[in-house]
Lab assay of single mutants.
Amino acid sequence: LDMDCLPYGWEEAYTADGIKYFINHVTQTTSWIHPVMSVLNLSRSE
């Protein structure tokens, strides 16, 4: 699993305190969880 590779439309950013988060420019949303990890967690719960 390549954690450096973000899906299309996603960008890694940091808060003023240096905390990493992710921006989805396609849906105009943000997430604290890496988008690949959130997809993996969803697929495990099914």
Rank of each mutant, 00 (worst) to 15 (best):
N24T: 01
N24I: 00
E11R: 08
S45I: 13
I33D: 15
N41I: 03
N41W: 11
V39L: 09
D2P: 00
W32N: 10
T27A: 08
P7Y: 04
I33V: 14
F22K: 06
I33F: 07
V39E: 14
P7M: 03
Y14A: 06
L42E: 14
M3D: 12
E46T: 11
N24R: 02
I23D: 05
W32I: 06
Y14I: 02
Y21Q: 07
S43L: 05
T30W: 09
H34E: 03
N41C: 11
W32L: 08
T30R: 05
G18H: 02
A16V: 07
G9P: 09
R44G: 15
Y14R: 09
A16I: 05
E46M: 00
C5N: 11
S45N: 12
E46D: 11
M37T: 14
Y8V: 13
N41L: 05
Y21W: 06
K20I: 02
G18P: 02
Q28R: 10
P35T: 05
I23S: 08
G9Q: 01
S31V: 09
E11I: 08
A13D: 00
I23P: 09
T27C: 13
V36S: 15
G18T: 00
H34D: 07
L42Y: 02
L6N: 09
L40D: 09
I19L: 14
I33Y: 11
T29W: 07
D17C: 02
V26T: 14
L6F: 07
A16M: 08
Y8L: 10
S31E: 05
T15Y: 06
P7Q: 01
I33G: 11
N24D: 06
D17I: 06
T27R: 11
P7G: 05
P7T: 08
F22I: 05
F22M: 09
M3E: 14
I23L: 07
V39R: 12
M3R: 13
I19D: 15
L1E: 13
E46G: 14
A16S: 13
I19Q: 15
E11M: 03
D17L: 03
G9R: 02
S31H: 00
W32T: 02
M3H: 12
W32F: 07
L1W: 10
A13V: 05
P35Q: 05
H25V: 06
E12A: 04
L42F: 10
W10T: 02
L6C: 09
D17Y: 01
G9C: 01
E12K: 00
